[in-house]
């Protein structure tokens, strides 16, 4: 009985961590699906989102929910500007130019955040901090973890409705499926792409604020991006549900490895998952095989 509860506990912890990875991975995938760019600064966007929330909630003393929304809006606006001012200029350059560009941006963001908010880890109190939800038979979860899982589910629902029901969402789908045809249909593709960057930055901000009760905010929290990469690759780069499923799997495997395998293997897990997926099933769990256009 004990073992079952323990495994359930680990799985629940892993799911909560995995939802965060999944949300960051979702950001990668949204941008990749639309623009075929890979944003190596996604983790840093999340870091900025966390610091925005810290500024609004802790420094300005705003209400948690208001600060949450403002942080999403601010990070989204930042993402929009990032595409409109920087990334749009390198369209048509080889893919690795974008990789290097976003890596360079990541370093700039990290240093800028360090210059503004300092290098010490900070945090703020949320309605979920240090609260416990008891599910009976010994299974105890922090409300912070429950909030992450519930938040992810709500976010996915909102995104699903947005992409399937609204005009803008359908325009985004159209532009990511065929840019040229979207242009012909009168969709302002460039603005749409910038908006996708905004959404993806906003999703990163949601992940950041939900992560706050669990982890302190610091300049290097963007390194979570590499785990999100594992999630995105596992789900099949380019599949939105795949990113979330991949995130949850990476989170759970990580927790189990941290418990059952020798110390130090936890940090290796996501990297090993990533490499083995690339070796065994490069198209990921839910990705479709894509052939190149000649």
């Amino acid at each position: 009985m004990d073992d079952v509860v323990r495994i359930l506990q680990l799985v629940a912890n892993g799911t909560a961590a995995g939802c965060i990875y999944g949300m960051v991975a979702l950001g990668f995938v949204l941008i990749y699906k639309a623009t075929e760019m890979v944003n190596f600064a996604q983790g840093e966007l999340m870091m900025l989102g966390a610091f925005f929330a810290f500024t609004f909630i802790e420094l300005w003393g705003l209400n948690y929910w208001l600060g949450f929304l403002l942080a999403i809006a601010a990070t989204g606006a930042f993402g929009y500007l990032l595409d409109a001012l920087v990334l749009r200029r390198v369209i048509g350059q080889p893919q690795f130019a974008v990789v290097m560009l976003t890596l360079g941006l990541a370093f700039i963001f990290r240093a800028t955040a360090g210059a503004i908010w300092g290098y010490d880890a900070v945090g703020f109190t949320t309605p979920f901090t240090n609260q416990v939800a008891n599910f009976g038979s010994g299974l105890v979860l922090g409300k912070d973890q429950v909030s992450i899982i519930v938040g992810t589910v709500i976010l996915c629902g909102v995104l699903y409705l947005f992409f399937s029901r609204t005009r803008l969402g359908i325009a985004m789908q159209a532009s990511s499926q065929n840019q040229l045809a979207a242009y012909y249909m009168g969709i302002p593709v460039r603005t749409v792409f910038s908006l996708i960057w905004a959404i993806s930055a906003g999703v990163a901000a949601v992940a950041a604020v939900l992560l706050v009760p669990v982890q302190m905010i610091d300049v290097n929290m963007g390194l979570i991006g590499i785990k999100a990469f594992a999630a995105a690759v596992l789900g099949g780069f380019g599949s939105i549900p795949g990113a979330l499923v991949g995130g949850v799997i990476v989170g759970i495997v990580e927790q189990l490895a941290g418990y059952y395998l020798p110390a130090g293997s936890m940090e290796l897990t996501s990297n090993i998952v990533l490499l083995s997926v690339l070796i065994v099933r490069p198209q990921g769990l839910l990705g479709q095989t894509i052939r190149k256009r000649v």
């Binding site: 290097m100 890596l103 360079g104 700039i108 990290r110 240093a111 360090g114 300049v219």
Partner: peptide, 22 residues
């Protein structure tokens, strides 16, 4: 005196080179 000066300068130079002098 900023601690992250060197990596950020590398980042900045990289960004500028890719954007303006590929």
């Amino acid at each position: 005196q900023l601690p992250g000066l060197e990596p950020s300068l590398f980042g900045l130079i990289l960004v500028l080179v890719i954007m303006f002098e590929p």
